[in-house]
Amino acid sequence: MVDYIVEYDYDAVHDDELTIRVGEIIRNVKKLQEEGWLEGELNGRRGMFPDNFVKEIKR
């Protein structure tokens, strides 16, 4: 799994989504079957977030 950095703020709409803020690092990200969404861990919580608000961290 890979990590992503947040490029744009996003406020969660549903309980299974993450609220993300610019500059945060989302860890252990995986792609979901639902197009346009990823799932990852942030601040001890796992949830979904839109893939166009983040950028993969290349290592």
Rank of each mutant, 00 (worst) to 15 (best):
E17C: 05
M1R: 11
P50V: 00
M48C: 13
W37Y: 13
D16I: 08
E24Q: 07
E17Y: 02
H14C: 15
I5N: 03
E17G: 06
V6P: 00
G40Y: 00
G36W: 04
G40L: 00
E34S: 12
G36D: 04
N28W: 01
E7P: 02
V13G: 12
F49A: 04
K58V: 06
V54T: 08
E24V: 00
E56R: 10
M1G: 10
I5Y: 08
I26F: 01
N52K: 15
R46C: 06
A12H: 00
E41K: 01
R45V: 07
A12W: 00
R21E: 06
L42W: 05
K55T: 08
G36T: 03
N52W: 09
D51S: 12
Q33F: 09
P50R: 15
A12S: 10
F53Y: 10
D51W: 05
F49P: 01
A12V: 00
K30N: 11
Q33I: 06
V2L: 11
E7R: 11
G40K: 04
H14R: 14
D9I: 01
W37C: 03
A12Q: 06
E7K: 11
V13D: 10
N43E: 09
R59C: 14
V29W: 00
D9V: 02
I20D: 00
M1C: 07
L38C: 09
H14E: 13
E41Q: 06
F53G: 10
P50Y: 05
V6D: 00
E41R: 06
A12M: 01
E35P: 14
R45W: 02
V54D: 01
V13L: 09
L18C: 03
H14Q: 11
Y4P: 01
K31Y: 09
Q33H: 11
V13W: 09
W37F: 12
E41L: 04
M1H: 08
E35S: 11
E41P: 01
G23A: 00
R45K: 11
I25Y: 07
T19C: 05
G44D: 05
E35Y: 08
V29G: 07
E24A: 06
I5V: 11
D16W: 11
E56M: 10
H14P: 00
K31H: 14
M48R: 15
Y8A: 13
N43R: 11
E39I: 10
L38K: 07
D15V: 12
F53T: 15
G40H: 02
I57V: 13
H14W: 04
E7L: 13
D15N: 12
L18V: 04
R27K: 07
D16G: 12
Q33R: 11
N52R: 14
I20E: 00
I20Q: 01
D3L: 07
D15I: 05
D15C: 07
L38Y: 07
P50Q: 05
K31L: 08
R21G: 01
E7I: 14
E34Q: 08
Y10S: 00
R59G: 14
R46T: 11
R21F: 00
D15T: 14
K31W: 06
I57R: 13
I20R: 02
Y4G: 06
N52A: 11
V2T: 11
M48D: 03
R45S: 12
Y8I: 15
I57N: 15
W37T: 06
D51H: 13
E35Q: 12
M48L: 12
D9H: 08
M1A: 14
V29S: 05
G44S: 03
R46M: 12
K30Y: 13
D51A: 14
E7C: 06
L32K: 14
E39M: 07
K31R: 12
T19H: 05
D3F: 03
R45L: 08
D16Q: 11
D51R: 13
D9L: 00
Y8H: 15
